[in-house]
Amino acid sequence: MVLDDEDFAEGTQKLTCPGEPITSSHAFMRGHGTYVDNEEVIASVAGTIERVNKLISVRAIRARYSPEVGDLVVGRITEVQPRRWKVDANSRQDAVLMLSSVNLPGGVQRRKLESDELQMRTFFEEGDLLVAEVQAFFADGVMSLHTRSLRYGKLRNGQLITVPPALIRRLKSHFITLPCGVDLILGLNGYIWVSKHLKQNEQEGEDAFDAEAVYSNRNDDIDDATRAAISRVSNIIRILGAHFVPLTDTLLLDAYEWAVEQEGGVKDLLNSDIGDALVSAVAARS
């Protein structure tokens, strides 16, 4: 392995940058983020070296989202096409949401007809935000999404924050409710939806499934306290994203408590010195 002495002193993980030889290709196989030239495995991205048995790969520290089946993503409709929507999901190509993989309003189960095709824009229009799950991949690597669950679908009553996808780890649940009356959806693609808390009975339950609400474009009434809480949480996420701190529910809770303790205004959080203080306070607590 060709690495300098300084790398050993540096600490926990081995770093590399494009064009750096890692090891011989006789003893190891090349994985993502590497290529083979002259019987050497060479890094092609800047990041940390990972090894699983004989497979050497380099995980890029900053890269676009690479989807996996079952991931929860938040996306934005960019285009309406025959029987499908194109969704921007921070990936290398736009994702596809087929008409057959969305729920009809009212929860009726049936084949999608031509009449549904004609009123696709009543479900999702260009610019609409939605939460969905990665269902499968097409042959060319485009991901296909589905929203066939009552938790998925169009998003409203909140705002979108974007962070680098590496900061969102796979969690038990990506739907987080903070005690301050704010719901969070942590999309694995780095898109985070911060919204007003919906009560459990409004959110689910087959009988209470409101045909109008699912694809509604209108926000509910949001009182000033909730608006302030949403903005505060959003600002906290922006700060943590800018400082490259991975997001978890406990971390966000700690950060929110800290921000409330400081008794500053919501926008004061965006001052760089308060942001730095927040990050160091949160790091100290965890």
Binding site: K14, C17, G47, R51, I61, L251
Partner: peptide
């Protein structure tokens, strides 16, 4: 890169042990 890796590590101290273990394995490559 090392600044970003450090920042990511700071937020998740719980997984620190894993990293150390992996690091020992990595050194065998040398």
């Amino acid at each position: 890169t090392s600044k970003l890796v450090d920042a990511m590590g700071a937020g998740t101290k719980g997984t620190g042990e894993e990293d150390v273990e992996r690091d020992v394995l990595m050194s065998e490559i040398n």
